[in-house]
Design a protein around this nucleic acid. Structure first.
Length: 469
RNA sequence: GGCCACGUGGCGGAGUGGUGACGCAGCGGACUGCAAAUCCGCGUACCCCAGUUCAAUUCUGGGCGUGGCCUCCA
């Protein structure tokens, strides 16, 4: 089976061929840790987690290296830390803020079934590597010092703009923002800038300062994956300027023809048909979905969020709606019959094939629906379905109560339910259907749905119950 | 102004140059004391206009609409 992936660099779907079969290398831009991660941040985390799982399946778990960084040096972080921890020294406040936010991020995406990457480097632990790259860029004439900054000289790179297909000469320079006078070209970007005493800073050949945004990814990817690696991923919005500038820095510093062979970008997300923004009041964090009833008046299990996210192809735009979550939850409810099934090991080949076609998760889910039909009657099929779902991170043996956290808050009195069921069975046996229906209605009012079935061996009626949808 | 996506039935959402994926909801039936679950079956779609073609939802051009980037926003 061939794995094919859509490459932003060529705007085509291409067969994937790793540089080394024994070490497939992927880098994905991680979060800037100054606030709760929003639902848009969850998309690349989930999408590239699926790719990580697929690569591990194809090449073997020990032959895949996945790096997702944490950006913990950033002016937004500085501002937020000063605001939240005015009593602390800047460095202490920043450390506290970034550690708390990173911990929350880990908690959030773990709930979404996202596996930890192989390495999760932090920008602040790679300053020396960044300085090295900047030194090399200066030495090779790709960078210059001006007004207390080190800047990348975009005119020094003949094929700058390949990824975003942008020709900087044709861009309207200064259309939206005034060109800063010290730049040689409007598109030049900061590699290093000097820090004021109250700002965080590191010593460098150019004085105490801090790195620009793009340089960290160049430094960390080279450190953990080498100067040329296989896959680089992130959100659509990162194509320009972030990834374009990463490419410029890395290639010019290392003298390589490419930085990564395949560039992948996930599509954007809207909320109920509108752009997500704080001003519209529809800004929604992962934590809001998991732990509050802000969205649709319900809490949502991480597995439900993941299912809803993978219902769309990763490059398509996705409209995040309550209805979408409701449907995802209903599907997972239906799959909860798998709780009793054993796990069979390998994921279903058709599902792997669908994922191998540029991560076609909607197609994979369609195949899963087909598998579910036979799984109802066939124990082997159930086991394979279960392992397939676990492979995709879509199943964790959750109970229906767990899948419906809002319901748990109302709390089910299991003993009372069991007692009523026993009473109903007795009434049924006595053909007192009026009483038996009364009990069932009473349970329904409590949010309990009953299912009668016959024990195949004895012919006895057995009643099970579940949380109503 | 430049660049880039997207527009499929009530909803979600794949895919394809030619017999209408799949799921949810809906409808009919089987099963059930009645239900639920399960099983069987059914319906409605490809933004608009041209062009290419024997044939276009699928290719080309134009239009309209939505979104993104061009400002360290996934």
């Amino acid at each position: 089976m061939t794995l094919s992936l859509y490459n932003t660099l060529t705007r085509k779907k291409e067969p994937f061929a790793p540089i080394e079969q024994s070490n497939v290398r992927m880098y994905v831009c991680g979060p800037t840790v100054y606030d709760f991660a929003h639902i848009g941040n969850a998309r690349p985390a989930i999408v590239f987690d699926v790719l990580f799982r697929l690569l591990r399946h194809v090449y073997g778990p020990e032959h895949v290296t996945y790096v997702r960084n944490i950006t913990d040096v950033d002016d937004k972080i500085n501002a937020r830390a000063a605001e939240r921890y005015p009593g602390l020294a800047p460095e202490a406040g920043i450390r506290k803020l970034t550690e708390e936010t990173a911990a929350q991020f880990h908690k959030d995406i773990a709930a979404l079934g996202v596996l930890p990457p192989t390495h999760e480097p932090r920008a602040t632990e790679n300053i020396a590597q960044m300085v090295e790259i900047i030194v090399a860029l200066l030495a090779k004439g790709h960078a210059y010092v001006a007004a207390g900054e080190v800047l990348f000289d975009t005119s020094s790179m003949a094929d700058y703009g390949q990824l975003s297909k942008r020709n900087l000469d044709e861009q309207q320079a200064g259309a939206r923002i005034e060109v800063e006078a010290h730049k040689k070209n409007p598109g030049d970007f900061v590699l290093w800038k000097l820090s004021e005493p109250h700002e965080p800073g590191w010593e460098s050949p150019w004085g105490r300062g801090r790195p620009g945004w793009h340089i960290e990814c160049s430094a960390m990817s080279a450190r953990y994956l080498g100067q040329v690696f296989d896959i680089h991923g992130g959100g659509l919005d990162l194509i320009f300027p972030h990834h374009e500038n990463e490419i410029a820095q890395s290639r010019c510093a290392h003298g390589t023809p490419v930085m990564a062979n395949v560039w992948m970008h996930n599509g954007f997300l809207q909320v109920e048909g509108e752009k997500m923004s704080k001003s519209l009041g529809n800004f929604i964090t992962i934590n809001d979905l998991l732990a509050t009833k802000m969205f649709g008046g319900s809490q949502w299990h991480g597995r439900v969020v993941r299912w809803a996210m993978l219902g769309s192809h990763y490059r398509q735009p996705i409209d995040w709606t309550v209805d979408r979550l409701v449907q995802a939850r209903a599907t997972l409810f239906e799959l909860s019959f798998l709780r009793d099934a054993p796990v069979a090991g390998q994921p279903h080949p058709e599902v792997v094939a669908a994922l191998s076609d540029d991560l076609n998760t909607p197609s994979a889910i369609s195949i899963i629906h087909g598998l579910a039909k036979s799984a109802h009657r066939n124990g082997d099929a159930a086991a394979q379905l279960k392992s397939t779902l676990q492979f995709m991170g879509l199943y964790g043996n959750e109970t229906q109560e767990e899948l419906n956290p809002g319901f748990v808050a109302r709390s089910v009195d299991t003993a009372a339910v069991e007692g009523l069921i026993t009473a109903r069975l007795a009434a049924r046996k006595a053909k007192d259907f009026k009483e038996s229906d009364r009990i069932r209605d009473a349970l329904a009012a409590m949010g309990i749905t009953l299912k009668d079935s016959k024990d195949p061996a004895t012919g006895e009626i057995v009643t099970s119950w579940e949380v109503a949808r």
